[in-house]
Structures are given as structure tokens and as C-alpha cells.
Design a protein around this nucleic acid. Structure first.
Length: 300
RNA sequence: GCCGGGGUAGCUCAUCGGUAGAGCGCAGCCCUGAAAAGGCUGGCGUAGGCGGUCCGACUCCGCCCCUCGGCA
């Protein structure tokens, strides 16, 4: 059976696994361009903390990096739209798209073609709901969309409110709208295999060399422009450095905390990736190149 | 050497007579318009050691060991 869909190469791995380097190498080799699938690398002004590549890093084009203001409202649905457009654009120009990043849900939205309920988030309305107890909201949800209530925990206020929001503004149940559509790409998923101990080492190394004072300076700059409450500001590094700047932690403590949080995040990512059995795990560039070669030849 | 604080879950500590709890960590899981976010679940540990008092001791008493602070 031949898969006629356009080919998309996905590269994923935990933070500090060396995704970007590897992706650049492979994109060069296979006439590719890279679309970012990292939720925090999308924002501009956040280069050090997110460790994201430049738009032309390594002589390869990177899309959806540093292209969004940290205060802009952003979400999965927006991401999906932007990323799919970019991928199609790359294909149209006869190049091979690479989707590269560590945000599982973003990748899943593309590879599984998630149909996201088309109700936009309504900040004002959400705030009005926040005032109620989770229990009250949950009871309401049980009445209006019992199926959704079954899947959402009574304490998960954020999801309860979203489910209610969808009903409130569309009249349709969220449980009936969240679906996987037919695939839009023929996907090869490549994961970068790395032991956790190795990731930990790289995390420490990255913090020492790439960050250091640069991260503190960047955080100072960001704090002047943006509120700490922004989702963009919750990215690894900024909360920790803010605590140092405020004098709550010593410099050493702040970096220690960052190392710990980064390690934990890497572990969390590794766990989620592990559940996808379709990922082909590779150790290095040669390994990956072989798989890509086969993929391009075979189903074309 | 003397005086005092302390030795309880990986860590920080709570319980102070009826055989132990919390936070963090760690592990696992759920999450489709905030995902580097949000939510859930999981604790038998010889309560430093040995004796004693007591129906019963982590809890009181004695000795020993370790640790921290002060005095020599």
C-alpha cells in the first residue's frame, strides 16, 4: 500500500538532547526546512532561556521560531494552523519539511490531525467562571456534557471551564468535537535516544556555558516588558532567575533549581514520548539519515 | 572535658504515653484553543543503639553512639 500523502519528517527528543543540531544536519542533507514544535521557542525576546535557533541557524531555514510576542494569546489551535500552513508552504516550494521540537501535544496535533473544537478562548468569560468553586462547575458539566465530565477530574478547573466554554459558545459538547481527523501527512517520527544520565550531563553543561549571566540579563529585560503571569514567562529559566533577581535565592541556588527543573522536564518528556510506539529511535545522524532515505524512497 | 539543642520516610520537619503524618523529592497516570501549562494517584519507616518504668513508649528515665552550637 502506498501512502500518497506528502511526507513529513518529525524529530523529537527531550530538552538538551541535541535536536536542533541533528535537525540542521539532516535538513541540509535532504534539502529541508525546519518547522519548530517547541511551545516556548515560538516567542521572540526569549532566546537564551529557550535555547532556540535563529531563523537561519546553520544555513537552514527555521520557521516559527521567535516569531510571536510573548504577550500574544497563543494556543494549540493557533499553532496547528500556523504549522500546517508552513509545512504546506515548504512542500509547495519542493522542499522537505522537518517538524522539530519537544512539545508532544503540538506534534500530535499535526501528526494525528487533531480536530480542535472551534471555540476561541474567552478571557472575560473564563474569569467570570473562575469565581465559582470547582465542585459547582463540575456539577454543571456533569449535566451538560456527562461524557466530558467523565474524562475530566473534578479538581481540574481549567479543563472544566474549557469544556463549559465550548458548550456555552457553540451549543455543542466538547466531548463530541474532540476528534482525530484523517491524516494529512505521511509521517516519519524520529526520536533522539539519550539516557537520562546523559541528558542530565548536557543540561548541566548547557546551563554552565550557554546561559550563565546571559540568562540573568535576558530575564531582567523580559521582566521590564512583560508580566510574570504570561504563559510565555513560565518557560524554564525565567521563574528561577526572577527569584534570584528578587533576592529570594542566591545565584547558585537559582541555577541549581533550574538544573533540577530542567532535568525533571526532560524526564517528563521522555516518558510521554515513550508511549508512542511509532517513534523510531536513533542515536546519531548516520542512523537517522538512513531511516530518512528509506522513508523518502519507499512510500513515494 | 563541661553545658545545651537535636537524632522519626531520600531531604526538611510534625506528632511527645495507646505501635507515626505533612511538604518537597521520587514513581506512575490523566489531560485537544495556557502543554516548559493544568490535574490525579502512590508512604511498614527496626522513630540512633541498649536497658528500665508502664497494661502499653517514638513519646518518660538511665547509659552509650552520632551531630550541631556555646564554654574550656
Amino acid at each position: 500500500m502506498k501512502n500518497k500523502l506528502p511526507k513529513l519528517i518529525v524529530m523529537l527528543g527531550p530538552t538538551a538532547s541535541g535536536k536542533t543540531e541533528l535537525a540542521i544536519k539532516l535538513a541540509k542533507k535532504f534539502n529541508g526546512e525546519i518547522v519548530n514544535a517547541d511551545s516556548r521557542a515560538i516567542y521572540c525576546d526569549m532566546k537564551v532561556g529557550t535555547d532556540r535557533p535563529g531563523k537561519n541557524e546553520g544555513g537552514v531555514r527555521h520557521h516559527l521560531v521567535g516569531s510571536l510576542a510573548p504577550y500574544s494569546e497563543f494556543s494549540l489551535a493557533e499553532y496547528k494552523k500556523l504549522a500546517v500552513d508552513k509545512i504546506n508552504d515548504i512542500l509547495k516550494r519542493g522542499k522537505q519539511p522537518f517538524l522539530v521540537g519537544g512539545t508532544w501535544l503540538y506534534i500530535s496535533a499535526i501528526t494525528n490531525n487533531l480536530e480542535i473544537p472551534s471555540v476561541k478562548p474567552n478571557k472575560v468569560w473564563r474569569k467570570s467562571q473562575e469565581k465559582f468553586e470547582s465542585e459547582t462547575l463540575y456539577k454543571k458539566l456533569q449535566k451538560l456534557d456527562p461524557k466530558a465530565a467523565e474524562r475530566i477530574h473534578p479538581n481540574d478547573k481549567r479543563r472544566i471551564i474549557r469544556a463549559l466554554e465550548v458548550i456555552n459558545f457553540s451549543g455543542k459538547k466538547i466531548s463530541e468535537q474532540q476528534k482525530k481527523g484523517a491524516p494529512i501527512f505521511n509521517v516519519l517520527k524520529i526520536g533522539i535516544k539519550r539516557d537520562l544520565s546523559e541528558v542530565e550531563k548536557r543540561v548541566r553543561g548547557r546551563i554552565k556555558t550557554k546561559m550563565g549571566d546571559a540568562l540573568i540579563r535576558e530575564t531582567r529585560r523580559l521582566l521590564k516588558k512583560y508580566s510574570l503571569k504570561l504563559p510565555a514567562m513560565s518557560g524554564l529559566g525565567y521563574p528561577e532567575m526572577t527569584r534570584y533577581i528578587k533576592g529570594e535565592l542566591s545565584k547558585k541556588e537559582a541555577f541549581e533549581l533550574l538544573a533540577k527543573n530542567t532535568r525533571r522536564f526532560a524526564r517528563y518528556q521522555t516518558n510521554t514520548f515513550r508511549q508512542d510506539k511509532k517513534i523510531k529511535w536513533v542515536k546519531g545522524a548516520t542512523d537517522a539519515a538512513e531511516k530518512i532515505k528509506k522513508f523518502i524512497k519507499n512510500s513515494g
